[in-house]
């Protein structure tokens, strides 16, 4: 469906704040910028704009040239339709990043930042890096002068996130590390305001998290686990390690859609049916017959799609108080 001719983007620009892409706020798209090519809801592709390159999507081809000098948010014509060229954000990135692993999605990502009390200047350690969905949000969150140490056991993933951070202007606040935090501990000690764990056995990393957290400032530890068994062991380890306010939260988002309310009187139904008989099993967009008069056409909301994620994981968080 997506075919991009450019996978190597060795452009070295964008290391400063206010630079291109994720943090910059320039009016026009420049070469080297990351652009989210938005086709339709749920269908978007990130590209790094480079003259001579083009991107081929299901509904047409687009030459990068056409983007350069355009205003962000512009509608741009492709060979067989159009796209919108969007400024990359952490939320959009999560929706279209190259997936190398299971990733954390926006509802969890955003809550994790709050549970870690992330703010400008925070020092945060994360493991594993995975595909960097959370890493990006953390990096943007600690700007301008905080730092994110992101750990993974896989060197390929680590090198990829390093390249992405460079491309996205986030290198100066990030340090990707190949390190098993359960065994080797974190890259820094007595430094962090927050530690985040998304590893199979988080309980094994809890003591190391304590060491990573700043002693004088204290900090927050957050762990994400899909299964309750992991939660149980991690919570025990946290209490054992001296954390307070150990709390486990689960959130389940629900996507809603606004639709016309179906409303007819018994008489109308008796006369015309509800429009189902003619087109059985044909989805939502049926018209409810109501005898000509389109009386109070209200709207309502339905959950849509009908099948949605109902669980990603439990978030366990806890506070380490300042230690003298």
């Amino acid at each position: 469906m997506l075919k991009t001719e450019s996978t190597d983007s060795s452009s070295q620009k964008g290391a400063g704040i206010g630079g291109p892409s994720f943090v910059g706020l320039s009016e026009l798209i420049e070469e080297g910028d990351t652009v989210i090519v938005y086709v339709s809801f749920g269908s978007m592709y990130p590209i790094v704009v480079k003259r001579g390159m083009s991107i081929t999507m299901k509904f047409g081809q687009l030459r990068h040239e056409f983007l350069i000098g355009k205003q962000w948010g512009s509608r741009v014509t492709t060979t067989a339709g159009f796209i919108h060229a969007l400024r990359p954000t952490s939320d959009l990135w999560t929706r279209c990043l190259p997936k190398r692993t299971q990733i954390l999605y926006t509802p969890d990502v955003s809550l994790i930042l709050s549970l870690l009390d992330v703010r400008g200047g925070s020092v945060v350690a994360e493991s594993g890096t995975g595909s960097g969905s959370l890493s990006h949000a953390l990096a943007i969150g600690v700007l301008p002068d905080g730092h994110v140490y992101t750990h993974d056991i896989d060197e390929t993933r680590t090198r990829k996130i390093e390249a992405e951070f460079k491309e996205h202007g986030l290198s100066h606040v990030t340090t990707p590390v190949v390190q098993n935090v359960c065994v080797e501990g974190f890259f820094v000690e007595n430094s962090c305001d927050g530690v985040f764990l998304d590893v199979p056995c988080p309980w094994e990393a809890v003591e190391n998290a304590v060491r990573a957290l700043s002693k004088p400032r204290g900090g927050r530890l957050v762990s994400f686990s899909p299964c309750i068994e992991q939660v149980q062991r991690t919570a025990s380890a946290m209490r054992e390690a001296g954390f307070v306010e150990v709390e486990c939260i689960e959130i389940v988002p629900r996507q809603l859609m606004v639709v016309d309310e179906r409303k007819q009187s018994l008489g109308e139904f008796n006369l015309h049916g509800d429009g189902e008989e003619c087109a059985p099993g044909k989805g939502r967009k049926r018209k409810t017959p109501c005898g000509g008069k389109d009386e109070d056409g209200g709207t309502t909301t339905i959950v849509s799609p009908s099948t949605q994620p109902t669980h990603t994981g439990y978030l366990i968080s806890a506070t380490m108080l300042p230690r003298l």
Binding site: F41, H84, L86, I228, E247, I251
Partner: peptide, 16 residues
């Protein structure tokens, strides 16, 4: 406007 998303979410604390 594009990428229009309307959502609510359940939020529940677990006793562990």
């Amino acid at each position: 406007a594009i990428h229009v998303v309307l959502s609510d979410q359940m939020y529940r604390v677990q006793q562990v």
